[in-house]
Design a protein around this nucleic acid. Sequence first.
DNA 1: AGAAGAATGCTTGCTGCAAGCAACTATAGC
DNA 2: GCTATAGTTGCTTGCAGCAAGCATTCTTCT
Lengths: 172, 172
Amino acid sequence: MTTHPDPRFQAAADTPAGQLARQLYGLASVRRELGKVANAELPGHGFGALVSVRKREHARVSDIAADLQVDLSVASRQIAGLVAAGLVERQPDPADGRAHVLALTDAGITALRAAFLEMVARLDQSLADWAPEEITQLAAGLERLATSFNAVAATSADADADTDSADQEVAA
Amino acid sequence: MTTHPDPRFQAAADTPAGQLARQLYGLASVRRELGKVANAELPGHGFGALVSVRKREHARVSDIAADLQVDLSVASRQIAGLVAAGLVERQPDPADGRAHVLALTDAGITALRAAFLEMVARLDQSLADWAPEEITQLAAGLERLATSFNAVAATSADADADTDSADQEVAA
DNA sequence: AGAAGAATGCTTGCTGCAAGCAACTATAGC
DNA sequence: GCTATAGTTGCTTGCAGCAAGCATTCTTCT
């Protein structure tokens, strides 16, 4: 179309960050299908919570919520679903009567492994013609991206709860 | 942070595809926040639809649905929202009375650019210490991933000769 | 040619799921 | 006791999908 060429916009779109933004948004369908595969055999969207529980030993619901960056109530319900399904064990924290300590059950470990393998299988279909080091390189890049991105999120959260006006330098 | 070493799980996680799977799933919060930024000023989750309308000239609702890989009804409602907001124009197709031809209005172009610039701005905060070529490399990897992934999806879903105009251009 | 019937493009009503907020309970710590 | 913290649950909202419906176009049979 290019009805009204906008130099400022063009410049931003061709920026490395602009290219990355485009690709990240285009990843929507990939992530959705992968999520479907991952959660197929789990209650709700439990996969993320399952992974999160596995990551730390004395996980508490609030830890999971912080890790997934969702509301505490969301984490609470996801964990409740996983407990009901026998995938997570919830025991009173001996050190704090309000809290619960979470851990995967054997069934939970099995389920997590199965879900993970399904994801990998689905990915492998698409990565048939990729070199292993290309895949690991992409994975490394994504890991770094997530780290960088979450670091900024944490910083701006610390700075102020106000999220609207604090951060934008759109102007050129 | 693993307390009970699980060799089998670790082995699965350490394959290249396994690493990629983990990182893709870990991208949830990144994509969510980026989506929030992108859709902040738009009705519903309109950004994707807006991009999709922008990509092709004589877009129809079914084209958008296919492009976004969502149900036709979802696309219909998103487009309706964008039309109501004055960002998309919907005119009867002169060649087919059942169909509508979609196009961005000037306001739509403006809104799309603004949303895109917001996304880029948010990303730039996180990418401050990245080398430009690292960013472009990651973007290229993601583009290839999306291509590979959607190719498999298309094959398994329905062998469709829908090899129309090239995709992935937010900028114009 | 013309009409019946199938197919297409899209919209809309209904349902289900998941997320967030707010209110509540129970415990902790001063 | 008084306040903060951990967690659960009720309520609301919003988005997605299915299925039914409407209007239009295509097909085909006579």
